[in-house]
Design a protein around this nucleic acid. Structure first.
Lengths: 101, 101
DNA sequence: TTTATTTTGACAAATAATGTCAAATATAGA
DNA sequence: TCTATATTTGACATTATTTGTCAAAATAAA
């Protein structure tokens, strides 16, 4: 249940790559990547997709980590956080049920 | 499981109030309120709180409708939407567990 | 009709997200 | 230690998104 930041930091350090290298692949300043890894900045969707390709891990796994981080970020200051997530889940189930047809 | 928009439209129409009146209470143009009710625009948190007071309904109920709408909006185009919501739920449970101490 | 209400879309202003850069700090090797 | 390299920090610029106004068009009600 790691954050996206933790995940990519582990991947990067596991391969002993400096921020500089990975950041240049993503076409951003290393400062941003540093902040993304420590969750001071959010990655963009594009960056997540690129990172999955770069590290050769399942794109969906990184997307789930990334999206769930964003969701947590959006609700965490709210008293009703958990309830809202549960209701959102129901709504999504309802919406995608129709889509399948 | 109504959207916030549906909810406040019902409340407003139940009281036979024109957009104009409620919008002026919120201090916004009626055009925006119209769009909020039809989910073309998101309400701000402030507006949700004001609406709960105005219609004398539970603030939490409106906040849950509002927040869950935002969450759905954030994930609905993603294949991994449901999974991300579930992971977010776990993360929130984990976070709030510590907070209680 | 004519009057009130709602909706639409073009546009403006405010806010938030995303990025660069350079300097400060931390880490590792000789 | 001294020096290289790597990382972090914060001020600032740029861009994108959000939030809003306004006036006209469409709809509904008297």
């Amino acid at each position: 249940m790691d954050s996206l930041g933790d995940t990519i930091r582990k991947l990067r350090e596991g391969r002993e790559l400096p921020l500089r290298i990975v950041a240049s692949y993503l076409d951003i300043d290393q400062a941003i990547l540093s902040k993304i890894e420590r969750q001071q900045r959010k990655a963009t969707r594009e960056q997540v997709v690129k990172l999955a390709a770069y590290f050769k891990v399942k794109e969906d796994d990184l997307l789930i980590a990334w999206l769930s981080d964003k969701l947590v970020n959006e609700v965490e200051d709210e008293e009703v956080a958990l309830k809202a997530l549960q209701v959102a889940e129901e709504k999504v189930k309802y919406i995608t049920k129709d889509r399948k047809k």
